[in-house]
């Protein structure tokens, strides 16, 4: 409680006490990321609960997306990026050399800022993951996976009769739900969403937010967002990042009603960012 008076730009993170209603799914400790010589993240320690939505907020360039990309090792695809520290999913170290990032990414799905369906049919978009991971042993099984994934993503009713049409022909909001269905189809444990609604109109956004709320029952969801209102609406936990530091982490309600760090308060009241 004394931390609330901490001066700005301290590396010390404010942690709110959390009612441990759900087990910890992702545990990060001392995560640091460098792009070439520039350090993008400084010693992030963060425990993320299963079956809940955790929101990462913060001004642009604060490192929230970078941290998100650490969780499925997407930073590996950037030549100059270097990641240090430990991230454990279900007590398994994912930064271990023995862990195949390809298999990891099947367990940790990702949804990007702009809807990016493959330029293939709706069916093939969803079926691609199960196909390459050998999750379905026959056509019927694959059909079933596609159907349940699309149903979970709340898209089935809209596309059931035109599964063979290209994914790009859908509207933006539908495309984003298609991408979520594609991520769900490989049966991941964690779903990462990098500003999933920033390219969508309010109605489509509301639809996705509903979906996120539904998915919470089965998955651990982590969402990066620039919209404070969205974070407040959909998440149970919120982490505030600033200049590569994790500033404050706690239940969403507390962060928004009673921020303890000045920077958090300034940001959520709209004084910067």
């Amino acid at each position: 409680m004394a931390d609330s008076a901490a001066p700005a730009h301290t590396a010390k993170t404010v942690y709110h006490s959390v009612a441990n209603t759900h087990p910890v799914k992702v545990a990060a400790s001392g995560v640091e990321v460098f792009y070439a010589d520039k350090q993008a993240l400084h010693g992030i320690n963060l425990d993320i609960q299963d079956r809940s939505v955790t929101a990462f907020i913060g001004p642009s360039g604060c490192g929230k997306s970078t941290f998100l990309r650490c969780i499925n090792r997407m930073n590996d695809t950037i030549d100059t990026a270097r990641v240090a520290g430990s991230i454990r999913i279900d007590d398994e170290e994912i930064n271990d050399r023995a862990v195949d990032p390809v298999l990891l990414r099947a367990r940790v799905g990702m949804v990007f800022q702009k809807p990016n369906p493959f330029p293939k049919s709706i069916y093939d978009n969803v079926a691609y993951g199960p196909r390459i991971h050998g999750l379905a042993s026959g056509k019927d099984e694959l059909d079933a996976i596609v159907e349940t994934s699309l149903k979970k993503a709340g898209l089935w009713d809209e596309v059931a009769d035109r599964l063979d049409q290209p994914g790009n022909s859908l509207s933006g909001g539908q495309q984003q739900r298609l991408v979520i269905a594609r991520a769900i189809a490989v049966n991941p444990e964690v779903i990462l969403m990098d500003e999933p609604c920033s390219a969508l109109d309010p109605i489509a956004t509301a639809r996705i937010e509903e979906l996120i709320d539904e998915l919470r029952e089965n998955y651990c969801l982590i969402i990066v967002t620039h919209s404070m209102a969205q974070a407040a609406r959909v998440s149970q936990m919120t982490a505030f990042f600033h200049l590569g530091h994790l500033v404050e982490y706690g239940p969403t309600e507390e962060i928004f009603t009673n921020p303890r760090d000045r920077r958090t308060q300034d940001y959520i009241t709209g004084r910067f960012g």
Partner: peptide, 21 residues
Amino acid sequence: PPSIREAALGIGASRTQAVFQ
């Protein structure tokens, strides 16, 4: 567009699969 590579890698395609498929 790089989003296609990311999309493929994001659902667990290997680099080779992302490139060739």
